[in-house]
Design a protein around this nucleic acid. Structure first.
Length: 807
RNA sequence: GCGGGUGUGGCGGAAUUGGCAGACGCGCUAGAUUUAGGAUCUAGUGUUUUCCAACGUGGGGGUUCGAGUCCCUUCACCCGCACCA
């Protein structure tokens, strides 16, 4: 009889709950292991099959490490603020808090049904005031350190909806809901100065055990670029200069014009009356373009001449100042010196508008294209004859000496836009006083609670719905009587997820974010598993907050996540991304009901490497179930007793004994490096062999069940108890293997002639090269093949092969 | 365009200090069992070929006694970034 997964899984899930089997002991003196899943957002749709993949991987590690003698911290919680709940609330008139609570209940039920070994005592929720109290506290620390500031920045404003939209809510310049036009509108926003940490975020990547692709993406995102800033005087304007950033100051003699971004604030001042109309027209044109169009239409360059001229500081030449949208206001100084001879974009622009192109680095053919390579400088006065590197250094020295420039590093990374004009987020604990000053809410008044309110509709002014709550925003200083108004912006979803891994360590602490001693014990996270979609934003924000907290002395490590693994996506059976519209979605609830949680866990780990994208297969999941059935039938009788095949004094062949020890070794090693698919394959091999045995010793049955238990814990607990144990298998010690049982006395050697296998030899292990060669040469078949040929060379590799080269 | 990755039987995938390609699973074939089917157990299963054998890791080239693995080149697909001066 096959095992009854419904009964057994429910039984052991209850047992684990009742016995608090997975409760983490802070007092333990075992070595620690902190294994973490990325913070789930409890969406109304519930779990999809991608969740159990990462969760099973971490659960296997957690369960195995416990059996290997580690004190394991394996927590879970809810990243529960966010847009979908607010949108649902708007659509239905319900309270997002209630909706969120229901979603969490669904997620929790689903996660529990999969039998993950979380310490549920440490469950946290970002929407819990006891949690967001500390999110607000961290914000205030950043504010006090000067890392949070208010700036006017353009946001996605939708006049029809009367609200600001997140980037992902804007599709082709229209609102995702309703298809209303969205414009870029400057608004006062809270910003976090992540750029102050750019270099450290970049440098510290080196020491992290993360996938190279993720590190590379972070490097590109930060986009550090070394060069120089150069000041250009403007002809006819004594008090104005334009500063540009360039990575190629050595080409300054080749600068034949200058380009400002259309949003550059100097344009209005310097534009000549004759050109004003052209410029205004062009700027209007650009403003009408969405970001997408601006980059999409990048094929042909556009621009307009201001009529003004800048003075090239190095040779005093007048060069025209243009504006063009290929220069971005958000990068560098929003202005460039154009060197068409040695920059492809400038070349294209200069060609189109018939601007002069001068060669200052030899080596290319400027009649065809820009030359961006290295070479000797020409037409460059004091740089002539120098290569790129020396020329850059010399030019920077010259700029510094003449007070018109200096070495400069810029970053692609911009400061973090931290405000959201939304209700369902952490309130920013700041009060705007009527005298214009800002006041931080005192620590002892935290948490600043999100008010319960019926009206979470957009305020219409671009402020968050909190502006509707006149009672909540009003503030009067009890001492001075000065009035103030609470900040109505809330925090983005990234806030709560930027530090949650710290709270798991001490989730109920009322005095502190977490006890420093406990932080010291548990940080950093030893293994962090999640999807690659968080490669940049979440992982960069969390690293930034962590470093700021490190500087404040709150946390003991400068990086939060030592090892990171991205699980690959599970595709539909048609090898395409699962989506409702394609009708290829697999619901884990259905699989748990039909095949069981153990089968789902096993199958997801067996499908392929953890980090690869893999298609789902109906037949595949059945195969995994079949394997568990085979395990069950081997060890358990139809009367639900331990099979008589398992015997204490069973004698087994050396060959089978070897398979067992090989299995312990391979599974232990493979699981340790998260090669679950190959480890499981070895478990299958063992069962295949075990089926051919008359008797199986108890210790082998136990060892096998222990090895399988991290993957399929319910069935293994059941068999473990049938073997006669009265404690959870979790409390047992991971099996060991005996190296001596693995030693081969004889090995098979292949004999090749010219690289082709012609014979096999059984020889003693460790047979010398010379002897191998002799044995190979006297082999009948080899003799046959070598007839009429002369041996040129013989390569012998002990315990592996002999290769005879013959002509 | 730039950066990163992947490419192996009918399918998912094994194999890395360069040394027996295809472990394990799915599917398929045969046998046993069964009234039958399903399930189960056992064996087989890269391609071509009567045999000997030859061929075979996206394509082409190279290094080597020996290449899925290293180098060059090329193609296809996936992911990320996208005028970053």
């Amino acid at each position: 009889m096959a095992f009854d997964h419904r009964k057994i899984e429910a039984k052991w899930q209850k047992y684990w709950d009742d016995h608090q089997t997975f409760k983490t002991d802070d007092e333990s003196d075992k070595p620690k292991y902190y294994v973490l899943d990325m913070f789930p957002y409890p969406s109304g749709k519930g779990l999809h099959v991608g969740h159990p993949e990462g969760y099973t991987a971490t659960d296997i590690m957690a369960r195995m490490k416990r059996m290997k003698g580690f004190e394991v911290l394996h927590p879970i919680g809810w990243d529960a603020f966010g847009l979908p709940a607010e949108q649902y609330a708007l659509d239905t008139g319900h309270d997002p808090a209630v909706f969120t609570e229901q979603n969490i209940a669904t997620f929790k039920r689903q996660i529990k049904s999969l039998g993950f070994s979380y310490d549920w005592n440490r469950e946290i929720n970002t929407t819990d005031p006891e949690y967001y109290k500390w999110t607000q506290w961290i914000f205030l620390q950043l504010y006090k350190k000067g890392l949070a500031y208010i700036a006017e920045v353009p946001v996605n404003w939708c006049p029809a909806l009367g609200t600001v939209l997140a980037n992902e809510e804007v599709i082709d310049g229209k609102s995702e809901r309703g298809g209303h036009p969205v414009i870029r509108k400057p608004m006062r926003q809270w910003m976090l100065k992540i750029t102050a940490y750019a270099d450290r975020l970049l440098d510290d990547l080196e020491e992290l055990d993360w996938p190279d692709s993720i590190k590379e993406m972070q490097r590109n995102w930060i986009g550090r670029s070394e060069g120089a800033e150069v000041q250009f005087a403007i002809d006819g304007f004594k008090n104005e200069t334009v500063t540009v950033f360039t990575t190629r100051p050595d080409t300054l003699f080749g600068a034949t014009y200058m380009v400002l971004a259309p949003e550059h604030k100097l344009i209005d001042e310097i534009v000549t009356p004759e050109q004003k109309q052209v410029i205004d027209l062009y700027r209007a044109e650009v403003a009408a373009k969405s970001d997408l169009e601006r980059t999409d239409l990048a094929k042909t360059k556009t621009g307009a001449f201001t009529g003004a001229y800048a003075i090239n500081p190095v040779n005093g030449k007048k060069i025209p100042i243009w504006i063009a949208d290929y220069v971005l206001i958000t990068y560098g100084f929003g202005a460039i010196m154009a060197v068409p001879g040695h920059d492809e974009r400038d070349y294209e622009f200069a060609t189109k508008f018939h601007l002069p192109i001068i060669e200052v680095v030899a080596g290319g053919d400027l009649s065809k294209e820009a030359y961006t390579g290295d070479g000797k400088h020409v037409h460059s006065d004091f740089l002539d004859g120098l290569g790129k590197k020396e020329a850059i250094a010399k030019m920077i020295d010259w700029l510094v000496d003449h007070g018109v420039g200096r070495r400069k590093i810029t970053y692609r990374l911009r400061d973090w836009l931290f405000s959201r004009q939304r209700y369902w987020g952490e309130p920013i604990p700041i009060i705007h006083m009527e005298d214009g000053s800002l006041r931080a809410v005192p620590d002892e008044e935290l948490p600043l609670r999100l008010p319960k309110t019926k009206n979470i509709k957009p305020s219409g002014t671009g402020e968050s719905p909190l502006a509707n709550d006149t009672e909540w925003i009003r503030f009067i200083d009890p001492e001075t009587g000065m009035k103030g108004r609470r900040e109505t912006n809330t925090m983005p979803q990234w806030a709560g997820s930027s530090w949650y891994f710290l709270r798991y360590i001490d989730p109920r602490n009322k005095e502190k974010l977490a006890d420093p001693e406990k932080l010291k014990r548990w940080m950093s996270v030893d293994l962090y598993v999640g999807g690659a979609e968080h490669a940049v934003l979440h992982l960069l924000y969390a690293r930034f907050w962590h470093k700021a907290l490190f500087d404040l002395g709150v946390v003991p490590t400068k990086e939060p996540f030592q090892k990171l693994v991205n699980q690959g996506m599970i595709l539909g059976t048609n090898h395409e991304k699962m989506s409702k519209s394609k009708g290829n979605v697999i619901n884990p609830d259905d699989i748990v009901a039909s095949h069981g949680a153990d089968t789902l866990r096993l199958y997801e780990m067996f499908m392929g490497p953890i980090d690869a994208a893999k298609p789902w297969s109906e037949k595949g999941i059945e195969g995994s179930r079949r394997f568990l059935d085979r395990v069950w039938r081997l060890f358990v009788t139809s009367e639900h007793r331990l099979s008589h095949v398992v015997a204490r004094d069973a004698k087994v062949s050396e060959a089978f004994e070897k398979v067992y020890h090989q299995t312990v070794k391979k599974v232990s090693e493979d699981f340790e490096i998260m090669h679950f698919n190959t480890g499981i394959a070895q478990l299958m091999t063992f069962i295949n062999e075990a089926y051919k045995q008359e008797k199986i010793p108890v210790y082998m049955a136990e060892g096998f069940i222990q090895l399988l238990s991290p993957v399929a814990p319910h069935i293994c607990e059941e068999i473990w108890s049938l073997i006669g144990h009265d404690q959870s298998i979790e409390k047992s010690t991971w099996p060991t293997y005996d190296d001596e049982k693995l030693v081969e006395e004889q090995v098979e050697i292949i004999v090749q002639v010219n690289g082709k296998i012609r014979a096999r030899l059984q020889v003693d292990k460790g047979t010398s090269k010379q002897e191998l060669q002799n044995k190979a040469m006297i082999n009948d078949r080899i003799q046959d093949i070598l007839k009429g040929k002369s041996v040129k060379k013989v390569i012998a590799v002990p315990d592996k092969l002999v290769n005879i080269v013959a002509k």
